[in-house]
């Protein structure tokens, strides 16, 4: 048994009161594969970032499930035949735990710290918003281009 995060989108054509039927149906599919739904977190109706099967909205269902790895393909096949489920994503949940152990944050001299120790040290501890960073970068690139022109000019 393995833990998975299972997220699926239910078609907006499904009536609100029929949603439970769909979740039961999906739950049954998981049970058929020898798994079980540990937790179900319905996000409700949400706008899709792009249309799927010409739908612009869908009911998001986020479930923590346990499933036998061998049963995944079967589940996928069944979901493919399920009209109400327009998209799903199954991701290993303990993947997170795995990365957590491998990432020892501050103390350990991790790879990227070794690469740029001078930068780390010279820098004051100011917070850098990722949104602001590109501006600086572009400015720098602009000045580089300027220089290039000056170089070739005379």
């Amino acid at each position: 048994m393995r833990n998975y995060e299972f997220i699926y989108i239910v078609s907006p054509e499904v009536e609100e009161e029929d949603l439970e039927g769909v979740t039961e149906k999906v739950g049954q599919m998981i049970a058929d594969g020898g798994g079980q739904v540990m937790r179900l977190d319905p996000w409700g109706r949400r706008r899709l970032a792009y249309p799927i099967r010409k739908f612009h909205e869908g009911y998001y269902m986020v479930a923590q499930i346990q499933l036998e790895p061998g049963a995944i393909s079967e589940l996928g096949a069944k979901l493919g035949l399920t009209e109400e489920v327009i998209r799903y994503l199954l991701v290993r949940a303990d993947e997170r735990a795995g990365t957590a152990t491998e990432t020892a944050p501050v103390k350990e001299p991790s790879a990227e710290e070794e690469v740029k120790p001078h930068e780390e040290a010279a820098e004051d501890r100011g917070e850098v918003e990722p949104d602001e960073a590109p501006v600086g970068e572009e400015a720098a690139e602009d000045s580089e281009e300027e220089e290039l022109e000056v170089d070739l000019g005379p």
């Binding site: 820098e123 600086g136 970068e137 400015a139």
Partner: peptide, 18 residues
């Protein structure tokens, strides 16, 4: 030609996840 403040305004960036 000398770099005229080549990296001016470029703030040191840090991985916000780290």
């Amino acid at each position: 030609p000398k770099r005229r403040g080549g990296w001016r305004f470029r703030r040191k960036k840090k991985c916000s996840f780290c």
